[in-house]
Nucleic acid binder design. Structure first.
Lengths: 319, 319
DNA sequence: GTAGAAGATGAAAAGCATTTCATGTCAAGC
DNA sequence: GCTTGACATGAAATGCTTTTCATCTTCTAC
């Protein structure tokens, strides 16, 4: 394909002039501009973007690290990021990690390689220090509580939200409260477990391992929770569920088994995804799309610091 | 940051030798290899990938054109693509189009620019001719019935599936069958409308505009459908719903209004997403993730032709 | 009338790695 | 002793665009 040199030759001008026309710089006479444009059309010229990237040292690409895009939670964040990226003329590179450190590292290497101009970490498994090391190569921002690290973050105080939810259920008369987590080792899970333990201490109640259900991530993970519940001597009367999807799965199985919600089992979920609205699930509103947009803006501006996103409970019919 | 020239200088070898070490070419003596590796470590060298892209004319990036990633349907396809991409060492550029032609065109331009090595079109609004024009710049593959065009495709015969579903409902005694569509102008919607019209002709039944519900895309679009149904003099007794999400929304509203499914309203949906499994929705299994993987393989291999993906109905409890 | 600014243009450097081609060494084989 | 092939190495070309610097012209203002 034709390159800028060819165009210069065809139009009878220098390469510089062609570049000026392409980039809209001033100081090009109308006649030459037209000649260049004509030549470009004639030769079906298209700028080789990789040469531009090389010389500019930027690519207009932002990396998004997500464990799995099929989880609506992340899909919503990415949607928010994508909308903002579009508005700013950036493209996104999707890096699906499945929580494997090696893949997370590869995303960081892309930053060092200058293949991406910045990196948005939606969730991760490696320690913060790995990310801090790469901070010098380009902006990174995380959607996870990174306070205490040098990685800028936009986060939700899960300790506070969980505490609020627990108190709410307690006030509604629930004395045995269980909860569902995704990965036990995740940052937010650890905060939630801490909130749970502190709550129990405050209420002088014993911690019971049987009340925590982990690895509940997808809608189909809800059913088994209900079955385990039914097998218990003293099952919890309320469940805090860290994802609307799982809550929907629980709700569906409860209906099948004619276990009344909220009479027999109360549910408080998180995210306020459309599904929760439709099913009337009491949940914490987390503005995932807006958070996505914020993440994008922050990574572009390269700002430091940690921003908390407030969440609030939306009462519907499951408590 | 250090470049290959610096490394060559530090290691006391030529640039070529450094390049050989980096790329694992043979014919490098052990002593020089070590010297180069030492120099690379010392100078914290990282290859500038954009220079590599420039000279190779490839980027290891595949573009994915999706209208909106937050729709689970597309998220699942992308998940499948991403898994396969990872296996093959490719990265993905997400191009969210929102069905705007300008953005679709921009994705095509990326192919021409050589910013991406290939393009997967999950759904689109522009005509095929636009895509055909760009076929010369790199492989394109579409997840949409492109028979009759030169764009390779992996597709589902929606005419056939719809016909099968209609006959099934007819055999179950339904005489008034309505259906929900996403965008009316989409390729699959047109095929489905055709199937519906042909079905009515075959059964000597009149076409009634009030039985088609369009722009139903998300889970929250289900409720309004039920409300419109209740307002009708002679509402359909069965609904074909082109997405599990919408079917879930319909089901939820039916329960709220105590409209028994399937006694008062039967539902057949499409996709067989996890949500449909959990809610016991009768639906057509479309292996979206596998299709994603297939799309990726095809775009890599640059194969032509059209491949039909067979679908089959899964009977659950909504008919 | 002249200094200085503004406008116009192009040569060349810079950005960086890969690959081809040329050259040289050494050992095996006849 | 000489040819041939395998192994080693580097100079230079290649991929393509942006940007700096230098040069030249043409006004404008005093």
């Amino acid at each position: 394909m034709a390159n800028i040199k060819d165009i210069a030759r065809i139009a009878g001008v220098s390469i510089t002039t062609v570049s000026r026309v392409i980039n809209g710089h001033p100081y090009v006479s109308e006649s030459k501009r037209e000649a260049v444009l004509r030549a470009m059309k004639e030769a079906d010229y298209e700028r080789n973007i990789n040469a531009v990237h090389l010389i500019k040292g930027r690519t207009g690409l932002i990396g998004i690290m997500v464990p799995s895009i099929k989880r609506p939670y992340f899909a919503l964040v990415v949607e928010g990021i994508a909308e903002e990226a579009l508005r700013r003329g950036y493209k996104l590179v999707l890096i699906q990690t499945d929580y494997e450190e090696e893949r997370e590292l590869e995303a960081l290497r892309m930053l060092k390689h200058k293949q991406i101009d910045g990196l948005i970490v939606c969730s991760k498994t490696s320690g913060w220090s790995a990310f801090e090391t790469y901070l010098e190569y380009g902006p990174i921002v995380a959607f996870e509580d990174a306070r205490g690290s040098r990685v800028p973050s936009i986060f939700i105080d899960h300790y506070r939200a969980f505490t609020e939810a627990l108190d709410y259920l307690w006030d509604k008369g629930h004395r045995r409260i269980g909860f569902c987590l995704a990965r036990r080792s995740g940052t937010s899970s650890r905060q939630r477990i801490e909130a749970y333990r502190d709550f129990l201490i405050r209420k002088r109640r014993p911690f019971e391992e049987s009340c925590v259900f982990d690895d509940t991530i997808h809608v189909e993970d809800g059913g088994p929770v209900v079955e385990r519940l039914l097998d218990m001597q003293h099952p919890p009367t309320a469940l805090l569920v860290t994802s609307d999807q799982v809550a929907a799965g629980i709700l569906a199985r409860c209906r099948e088994l004619e276990l009344e919600v909220p009479r027999r089992l109360a549910l408080v979920a998180f995210d306020d995804q459309p599904l929760a609205r439709v099913l009337g699930i009491t949940t914490f509103a987390i503005p995932l799309q807006e958070i996505g947009a914020k993440l994008f803006r922050q990574v572009l501006e390269g700002g430091a610091g940690h921003t908390e996103i407030p969440v609030r409970m939306i009462e519907r019919g499951t408590v």
